[in-house]
Simulated scan of single mutants.
Amino acid sequence: MKKRFISFGGVIFEGCSATSISVYRDAAALQLEDGKILSSHIIIDAMGNFSPIVRQIRKGKKPDGVCLVVGCCSRGFKDNYTGDVIYSSSSVRKVGGSKVQYFWEAFPAGSGPMDRTTYMFTYVNPQPGSPKLEQLLEDYWDLMPEYQGVSLDNLKILRVIYGIFPTYRESPLPAAFNRILQFGDASGIQSPVSFGGFGSLTRHLGRLANGIYEAIRGDFLDAYSLSLLNPYMPNLSASWLFQRAMSAQQNSNVSPEFINELLHVNFLCMQRLGDPILRPFLQDVIQFGPLTKTLGLVILTKPQIIPSIFKQVGIPVLLEWSGHFFMLGCYTFLSTFVDPALRPLLNSFPAKIKYEWKRHLEAWKYGSGLDYKL
């Protein structure tokens, strides 16, 4: 990839730090620590969750949720043929001053036939007393052998993995400045129930690459035009209910087994409904039809769980989610029926209007999850 980038005329400045960005009418200038200045039509902020530009835009706002992840890649797994997307082996427990619900993910690593990566993760509301990564790692070493049916003495630890993934309800993040666009995790385009947005980025890469190219070619580099590349997506906003439901609430009076029970009945219902319902969800793609069918079957299968859902997530969160669910239905309708009628007319529009409407059509499609194909 590096060679391909250079072959197209790209230049890589390794070991350089940027100190400031200045935006002018016809360019953006990047000031480097060594005094050099790089000018460009557009600056892509791909500095991740902790981008200093994002911190400036969000004005130091506390994340609405955090996913804490610890794990390792180890050698020594003899039965190394299967994987877990999400697995829970315990109920809510106390860690430090907080309650947490642990989840697991595991899969064979590509570095060798007996190499395996295992993650343990949890969702928390950031507040004083939240668990530390070192506390999670201590639990990980205690719980992982039982989860995988191995002894630590028989494993060679290749590398230890840990991370903090903050998420915000106000995502994706609209462009706040002319000629500067947030990209990847910096844009908040990842699902709040995933740790890291690699899968999300690959899903949106074609859309973003084409949109950025058209923005540069047409000089549509004002903040509004760039914001159309990171639009409101109701399926992403609707995912917040799942993150909330999977987070152990500190003052909740629901059963410690509630989260496991909820996940069990949800996955049971999705399995009954088949791959068209289950597979998009497992890949963090929320669609109106599958979500409606799943919720309906959950209510019919286990109606007694509904009061606990209200207690767990709270009425305000459910009301907010209902708005996103309604918009998810609207975007599905618009992408299914209005998009085919409008798309043939795009070439007759002026360049700026054409650019904007192409972004609207993309927002309907990706915001409803209809870009996903089995």
Rank of each mutant, 00 (worst) to 15 (best):
G188H: 05
L228K: 13
E170L: 12
I259M: 10
S252F: 02
I164W: 06
S191Y: 03
P174L: 02
S191H: 04
P166Y: 14
Y168E: 05
A176R: 12
R217E: 12
A176K: 11
D222K: 11
L221Q: 03
R169G: 09
G184M: 10
P172G: 07
F267L: 11
Q182W: 09
N230A: 07
Y168C: 09
N260Y: 06
G199I: 04
N210F: 15
N210R: 15
A176G: 08
I180T: 15
Y213H: 13
F183K: 05
L158E: 09
I157D: 00
D222L: 07
S237A: 13
D185V: 15
N210M: 15
N253Y: 00
V254W: 06
L208D: 01
T202E: 06
N251Q: 09
P276S: 07
F242Q: 03
Y213V: 14
S237E: 05
F242K: 00
F220M: 01
P234T: 00
S255A: 03
P276C: 04
G211H: 09
P166R: 12
S194G: 06
N253T: 02
V265C: 05
A186I: 05
D219H: 14
P192Q: 03
M233G: 02
F165V: 07
F242N: 03
A175F: 08
V254I: 14
S171K: 13
G218M: 01
L236V: 03
D219Q: 12
I164G: 04
Q250G: 08
W240R: 09
F220Q: 00
M270S: 04
I157M: 08
S252M: 01
S194V: 07
E170V: 14
W240Y: 15
A186L: 06
C269H: 08
F195D: 03
I180G: 14
S191R: 02
M233L: 14
N178F: 13
Q190T: 12
L226Y: 11
G211V: 09
F165C: 07
Q182G: 10
R217Y: 11
P231W: 02
M246C: 12
V160Y: 07
L208G: 02
V160L: 08
